[in-house]
């Protein structure tokens, strides 16, 4: 996969070419890079960055910053919720409690992402894994491992809190136990 910088340069170069052509013709119409069909290059760029409410599960993120991992639990129905949620649709209540996760589990499945989304292009190939925790619920996250041949389904794993660099936010990882 190309690096993010390389991709950004390719896009910038291409847009520059569009601009040059537009100066001549007065139209943002260029040949499609693959098919050569004439295409109009959108002149209204759309940039999206979402604002996601976390107020009702704030404790989860406060826990991460302290190196702790929490799950929510409905005491009436004895149901764990991970990812954590503030409402229990089973008992129709929001009387959930916060439990610290044991952190011990077994690997259910995993993959190595070779072709990454553009917004992850600055990361090297990463392992995504799903583990069943000893409490009975599952967690999906990255798995930190120095040697891919050491990973196998059914192995013991543990959860750890680390910063995701270079973004810098606290999140959770699975590791061989």
């Amino acid at each position: 996969m190309e690096s993010k910088e390389k991709i950004e340069k390719m896009v910038a170069d291409w847009l520059k070419m569009v601009e040059e052509l537009m100066k001549e013709s007065g139209l943002p119409i260029v040949p499609d890079p693959k098919t050569s069909d004439p295409v109009w290059v959108d002149v209204r760029e759309l940039r999206l960055r979402y604002l996601i409410p976390v107020k009702r599960i704030r404790k989860f993120f406060e826990g991460l910053a302290e190196g702790k991992l929490y799950v929510t639990k409905c005491p009436a129905k004895n149901i764990y919720y991970f990812p954590p949620q503030a409402d229990c649709p089973a008992c129709m209540d929001e009387n959930i409690v916060w439990d610290e996760i044991s952190g011990n589990g077994k690997l259910l499945t995993y993959t190595v992402v070779n072709v990454k989304p553009y917004s992850f292009a600055h990361h090297s190939n990463y392992v995504i894994a799903i583990a069943r925790m000893s409490e009975g619920f599952n967690i999906l996250s990255w798995m930190s491992v120095d040697d891919l041949s050491k990973i196998h389904v059914g192995m013991d794993v543990k959860l750890v809190v680390k910063r995701r660099e270079p973004e810098g936010f606290f999140t959770y990882y699975l590791e061989p136990a």
């Binding site: 992402v113 072709v115 990454k116 917004s119 990361h123 990463y126 995504i128 990255w142 999140t171």
Partner: peptide, 9 residues
């Protein structure tokens, strides 16, 4: 819980 933090494809 899948894409934003873990880059699922």
């Amino acid at each position: 819980w899948e894409f934003e933090q873990f880059g699922l494809t």
